[in-house]
């Protein structure tokens, strides 16, 4: 297990290093931030001065080395726009995004798994086929369009839910979140549903495929031959087996939900990291973009690792292999 952990840690370090080079080259290619940050009336001398102050006068490889040196010490640079450490700016926005992603995840599990189970157990029924047809829509409808339709329906026409923004966060049990209030839930409802739709569709299909496969297995027939109730056969014998792929995919999806809630956050003006990154790219606020991407990579690595650990809890056969290595 220790060997495994060390190997994973080294892989993670390598991924981060490669990513940092790619990101650095990428933002360099996007354009010169000085042209946007400084007013057009500034003199050539003022521009040079600003360039030197931000360290942009150095050759690219030197800029990278300076960045690397600071990054190792936990400093990912200062935002050009906010004049604050980039990491701090991002972390201020992080809770909002995490909140949104977790609520979307909640819908995904709450709706995706039971609907997939139903569709898998009754593949030829009208309800089962309707669920499958619906999941195709969930996959293929563009998220920005669905977002606008949600706003049209529930905010404009029905007036049930607010269309934009996040409610004021409240601190309870040491956790600051807007979800402690009913108003907070009302605000998070539309964006989270919008974000969850594609995920729900994915989980429905995954669960259905898993159930259909598991139902044909001998262990299900044997469980029935033991005289177990249908409820126990499905709830324990089938579910425990199909949870393995579902947990894997959910973990990966949580990572991408946090990282790429950009569209949803923009439409619903949700003050999260996705909106921040879009704004920062527009303003060529390099440190924020770099820090954001580095953090995202780190987060995805972390979630993947958590999934691997969870995997070994769910599947006893994985545990054996670990102790053997």
């Amino acid at each position: 297990m220790t060997v495994y952990l060390i190997r994973r840690l080294m892989q993670a370090g390598l991924v981060l290093a490669v990513m940092s080079v790619l990101v650095f080259l990428g933002v360099f290619a996007v354009g010169d931030p000085i042209e946007i940050l400084i007013s057009p009336e500034a003199t050539q001398f003022e521009k040079e001065e600003a360039r030197r102050a931000l360290g942009l006068d150095l050759p690219l490889w030197q800029q990278y080395l300076v960045f690397l040196e600071n990054a190792v010490q936990g400093d990912l640079g200062r935002s050009f726009v906010f004049n604050m450490p980039a990491i701090q700016v991002i972390l201020m926005r992080f809770p909002a995004t995490l909140e949104l992603a977790l609520v979307a995840m909640l819908w995904t599990v709450l709706f995706g798994v039971p609907l997939g189970l139903w569709a898998g157990l009754k593949p030829n029924s009208v309800s089962g086929k309707t669920i499958m047809a619906g999941s195709i829509l969930g996959f293929s409808l563009p998220s920005f369009w669905v977002g606008l339709m949600l706003i049209m329906t529930f905010a404009v026409m029905l007036g049930w839910l607010p269309s934009t923004g996040r409610a004021e966060p409240v601190t309870m049990f040491g956790i600051t979140s807007s979800l402690w209030t009913a108003k907070g839930w009302a605000h998070v409802m539309l964006p989270s549903v919008n974000l969850a739709l594609g995920q729900i569709a994915l989980v429905i299909r995954l669960t259905r495929a898993g159930v259909r496969e598991a139902m044909l297995m001998d262990y299900v027939k044997f469980a029935r031959a033991k005289g177990l109730t249908q409820r126990r056969v499905i709830g324990v014998h089938v579910m425990k087996n199909i949870m393995i792929p579902i947990v894997t995919v959910l973990g990966l999806e949580l990572g991408s939900l946090i990282a790429f809630a950009v569209v949803t956050e923009s439409i619903f003006a949700w003050p999260g990291m996705g909106k921040l990154i879009i704004d920062s790219i527009n303003l060529l606020d390099r440190p924020i973009v770099v820090a954001y991407l580095m953090m995202t990579v780190f987060l995805v690595i972390l979630i993947n690792f958590a999934v691997d650990v969870l995997y070994s809890v769910l599947d006893p056969r994985v545990r054996l292999k670990d102790s053997g290595s």
């Binding site: 297995m217 001998d218 262990y219 027939k221 044997f222 469980a223 029935r224 031959a225 033991k226 005289g227 177990l228 324990v236 014998h237 425990k240 087996n241 393995i244 769910l314 599947d315 006893p316 056969r317």
Partner: peptide, 21 residues
């Protein structure tokens, strides 16, 4: 009745027991 009065043994023992329980 199943499992209590009438029981069954299957062909492939590698497949009849649930691998995760």
């Amino acid at each position: 009745l199943r499992g209590a009065r009438i029981a069954m043994i299957f062909q492939d023992p590698m497949m009849t027991l649930n691998p995760v329980l």
